[in-house]
Design a protein around this nucleic acid. Structure first.
Length: 630
DNA sequence: GAAAACGTTGGCTGG
DNA sequence: CCCAGCCAACGTTTT
């Protein structure tokens, strides 16, 4: 009996430590083993990936490749430049593969992709071996123990997880790796359709990723940013398993930090160093095993004794939330990252709703990433949010940090997400999720979509009256505004009294700080090196009231994403009858938004106190932080 | 069945 | 400085 010839397919597990799938591959006692990564067009062209996340992925790939080379100088991470759905079958034949081994992935696209690959393996007589190690528990087991339903709270996740059993203990890294076999590529190369390249606007040069299966030098080298058509990354954060294990060791070494970590008490304005671990991008690419992280923390917690923090606030609690979102996504499937057709997501008539993609690429009316500009005002607010020129310094600081670093603190994400959706702009959470998808180095579909649903109060969370203030929330941690001074240098000399709301500063205070409050920030004033900073794009207190009232109306109507009336647009009548005019308070009827604009004062309706009433009364004014007179 | 408690992490005032 | 209590009030789970 000949020894197995194993193709090990790395995907979201770019590490050697604690890899159940890699262990299974080595347990086959292979004659040869090829560690490969397939360069998937779904990621390269059909997902938005900003330059910082590309850099982070390349870091992880290069570090893994170096580690493989240390175990066996003849081997490395071989990058195969073709869609796995087509290329793996060709490799099965050309390389005489007997076994394909990979770690399972419960993301919607990955499941479908893997189904195709497994089918092609069956045709080629290749045995497929899979294991799972991407989350604490096997997510399919969690869903099964939860009756096939999505886990919509942390208690549900914990209950289902406990039924699955103990979280597996980490597996050591392998001590050796077999040689790779021969790698002929004398087969036809399928190139992907690049006509619809979501990343085209982000590339400064044409991408050459797919010129040949084995890359420009024919050596299966890891691609470079330049090859992808990107200019240099701006993030200071670097990826890779080596860094992951070092960072974890540093965190664990601080036993008090590890054992008493309470997420709500960590400071979103802290920088150099930030208040949380920054392990999320490493978990995303699999450079760090969540189970290793869990058990290392757990050892410290147990040793620390009764003063340790507990889930959900603790460090391990953060990992539980990750499992919760993965399990929710696994149960809901393709509608998970969108509102449409999603029975678990509340319907709110947000501005800038997604266009529906009737194409067949993903089926089931998946959103296309494009959106309707139902309100020019909301579109402008969205653009100003996206580029960090809202005129609210704390929001702008966070959005600029996000663009440069690809990372902001979790509570900072809460702030800007609440502001864009239910607590300010009333823009669809899918727009915000799109921007985060492009800019975050730790972007995880399940966690991103789930958290946007949470913050917009459309799923997981419903206390929409708890609203983050762009002034008070940051001041809670950073009275002096150092975080703003770093990211919004126009305001670096501003008096601390006004740095969160510079529009309230007197002319002399502004002159002293060298600041001019002017324009909408979109005209490029910043690039000219002036200290012009835009005024606030709306009255926050007014918008907060209008949004809360509109949310109340939407909640009382009670539609969800799978409702027939959502799909056929008859929902509009319901909202018209209820007086849904969230924009009215701002600028009357120049918005062609949801339903016919109503005249002020005609929206009494059956829902009693409407947002117009609330705005006229102005009872929420006290929620806008008023500074004491100097 | 009704009421209370709970739910990852709000803001503000007054003591 | 910290904290309790209020605001106006959601859905779900527990009692």
């Amino acid at each position: 009996m000949e020894k197995p010839r194993v193709l090990y397919w790395f995907r979201t597990d770019l590490r050697l430590h604690d890899s159940p799938a890699l262990k299974a591959a080595l347990d086959l006692d292979p004659a040869v083993l090829w560690p490969i990564f397939t360069w998937d067009p779904h990621y390269v062209y059909r997902s938005k990936v900003g330059v910082n996340r590309w850099q982070y992925l390349l870091d992880c790939q290069n570090d893994l490749s170096d580690s493989i080379k240390k175990l066996n100088p003849k081997s490395k991470l071989f990058v195969v430049r073709e869609a796995p759905q087509t290329v793996l079958l060709k490799l099965f034949w050309a390389w005489k593969v007997t076994h394909l081994v990979f770690e399972r992935d419960t993301d919607t696209y990955a499941r479908e992709r893997d189904r195709v690959v497994v089918e092609s393996a069956r045709k080629a007589g290749v045995e497929v071996v899979t294991r799972y190690g991407r989350t604490l528990w096997d997510i399919d087991d969690v869903v099964a123990k939860h009756g096939g339903k999505p886990t919509m709270s942390i208690t549900q996740l914990q209950a289902a997880g406990n039924k699955v059993g103990a979280i597996p203990k980490p597996i050591p890294s392998p001590k050796h790796l077999p040689d790779p076999g021969e790698m002929p590529v004398d087969f036809e190369h399928d190139r992907p359709d690049t006509e619809r390249d979501l990343n085209a606007p982000l590339r400064s040069k044409t991408d050459k990723t797919y010129n040949s299966v084995a890359g420009p030098k024919g050596d299966f080298a890891i691609e470079t940013l330049e090859e992808l058509g990107f200019s240099a990354a701006t993030t200071p954060h670097r990826g890779g398993e080596t860094i992951a294990l070092e960072k974890l060791a540093q965190i664990i070494a601080d036993q008090e930090y590890t054992a008493t970590f309470q997420k709500p008490k960590t400071n979103p304005t802290a920088f150099e160093p930030q208040a949380t671990t920054l392990l999320s991008p490493l978990l995303h690419f699999g450079a760090l095993s969540p189970r290793l992280f869990y058990w290392r923390v757990q050892e410290v917690v147990e040793k620390y004794g009764k003063n340790a923090s507990h889930p959900p606030e603790s460090l391990t609690g953060q990992l539980l939330f990750r499992d919760m979102y993965f399990a929710a996504q696994a149960a809901i499937g393709s509608p998970f990252p969108q509102a449409l057709n999603n029975a678990h997501v509340r319907f709110i008539p947000w501005h800038l709703p997604s266009k529906v993609d009737d194409g067949t690429e993903t089926g089931t009316n998946a959103i296309s990433g494009e959106y309707h500009i139902d309100s020019p005002q909301a579109e402008k607010w969205f653009q100003r949010w996206k580029f960090g020129v809202t005129g609210f310094p704390f929001v702008d600081a966070l959005m600029r940090q996000l663009r440069v670093e690809g990372w902001i603190h979790h509570l900072g994400r809460h702030m800007v997400a609440c502001f864009l959706t239910r607590g300010g702009c009333y823009v669809h959470w899918e727009r915000g999720a799109d921007v985060f998808e492009e800019l975050l180095i730790d972007h995880e579909v399940a966690c991103n979509a789930g958290n946007w649903q949470w913050l917009s109060c459309t799923a997981f969370y419903s206390q929409y009256y708890r609203c983050y203030s762009p002034v008070a929330f940051g001041q809670k941690w950073d009275k002096n505004g150092d975080f703003i001074r770093k990211w919004v240098p126009e305001l670096k000399d501003m008096d601390a009294k006004f740095i969160y709301e510079p529009w309230k500063a007197s002319k002399s205070a502004l002159d002293k700080a060298g600041v001019k409050i002017e324009g909408d920030g979109l005209g490029g004033g910043m690039e000219q090196g002036t200290s012009t900073y835009p005024g606030p794009m709306f009255d926050f207190g007014e918008r907060r009231s209008a949004c809360i009232a509109a949310m109340k109306t939407a909640y009382s109507i009670g539609l969800h994403g799978n409702d027939e009336r959502v799909r056929n647009s008859t929902w509009k009548e319901l909202f018209e009858n209820a007086g849904e005019t969230e924009m009215e308070a701002v600028h009357g009827s120049d918005d062609d938004g949801h339903g016919a604009p109503l005249e002020k004062g005609k929206n009494g309706g059956k829902h009693g106190r409407t947002k117009s009433d609330a705005v006229k009364e102005g009872p929420m004014d006290r929620h806008v932080k008023k500074l004491k007179a100097p």
